[in-house]
């Protein structure tokens, strides 16, 4: 039961990173791939109908942590107090900026909020999780920069996939440029994850083990993504960046399974079997519907977003 719920929480966080990853990237890139207000609206409309639903993956992941592993939830968020405050500030600024920018006379403040509010969580989630797994300030900085770059790349590919016209062209250039930054960072961050995981001394140190595989595969997926966007295969490139994020997240959670937090094991942190059983049943019934209607949203808005003249 503990493994099942840890797996569900890992799945929810992974879904959050994959989905919000491109929201953050689009938010960061919108002012830079757009030449005027119309193009900026075009860029942001690619995430318009979906970003709020994507964010609920985070709310659900955190809610599931609270319900299934209360001591872990409490430990992580009180230990990383200041970074989490800044993440929240970012999410507030971004959310308000996105919702309000069409309703104000001059959206410059909203746009600033969207950029800063996308950058903060994109960097800080990486920093928090890198620190959680590797336990050093350096790892936090590298991890944060890596996820920031990864989100930009993911968002650029998403923009190239979901728009047409000049924005699509510039998004491809942005994807290639951010790919050039992401790949070296990935080499450092992912090899750190693959070889140095388990800072609490429970993992195997420098040796390769089964838990290293997803990190190495993530690297391969990233390289493939850059190659694919070069060859203008935007759909496949997006699949590759999504896979890279999912594998990175899987690798992080594989480490956390062993060492969720200093001085804490999952078994100690866990709720009782009754709570987990009840939540499992409800989750099993509800989650397919959620996936179905969220998937349907993407289907409804599958058309490339064009400029309106």
């Amino acid at each position: 039961m503990i493994d099942l719920w840890f797996g569900i929480i890992a799945f929810l966080w992974t879904g959050y990173f994959v989905l919000e990853g491109f929201d953050f990237g689009v938010g960061l890139l919108a002012p830079f791939v757009s030449r005027d207000g119309d193009e900026q609206r075009q860029s942001l409309q690619t995430i318009g109908p979906v970003w709020d639903g994507n964010e609920v993956w985070l709310i659900t992941a955190v809610g599931a942590m609270f319900a299934a592993f209360p001591a872990w939830y409490a430990g992580v968020f009180s230990a990383f107090y200041v970074p989490v405050v800044l993440v929240l500030v970012g999410l507030i600024m971004r959310g308000v900026g996105l919702e309000w920018r069409g309703k104000v006379t001059n959206p410059v403040w909203c746009d600033l909020g969207i950029v800063v509010g996308s950058a903060l969580p994109a960097f800080l989630w990486g920093a928090v999780f890198a620190n959680l797994v590797l336990g050093s300030a350096l790892a936090a900085v590298v991890g944060g920069l890596f996820t920031l770059a990864l989100c930009v790349l993911h968002g650029a590919v998403f923009l190239a996939l979901r728009t047409d016209g000049p924005v699509r062209r510039r998004a491809r250039v942005a994807a290639l440029a951010s790919g050039a930054v992401t790949l070296p960072l990935a080499a450092v961050a992912l090899s750190g994850l693959a070889f140095g995981g388990g800072a609490t001394g429970t993992a195997t140190g420098t040796a390769l083990d089964a838990r290293s595989i997803p990190a190495l595969a993530a690297m391969a997926a990233l390289a493939a993504a850059v190659a694919l966007i070069w060859r203008r295969r935007e759909g496949w490139a997006f699949a590759a960046t999504a896979t890279a994020i999912a594998l990175t997240s899987a690798s992080v959670f594989a480490e956390l399974r062993v060492a969720p937090l200093d001085g804490l094991t999952l078994a100690e942190a866990a709720s009782g079997p009754y709570t987990m059983t009840m939540l499992t049943w409800i989750g099993l019934i509800a989650l397919p519907f959620v996936l179905l209607y969220q998937g349907w949203t993407y289907w409804v808005f599958r058309k490339r977003v064009s400029l309106v003249h």
Binding site: T60, V62, G63, A67, A68, P70, T275, M278, L279, I282
Partner: peptide, 11 residues
């Protein structure tokens, strides 16, 4: 207490 919060998000 976590259960209704998780249900709130999910449902």
């Amino acid at each position: 207490f976590g259960a209704p919060l998780a249900l709130e998000a999910l449902l």
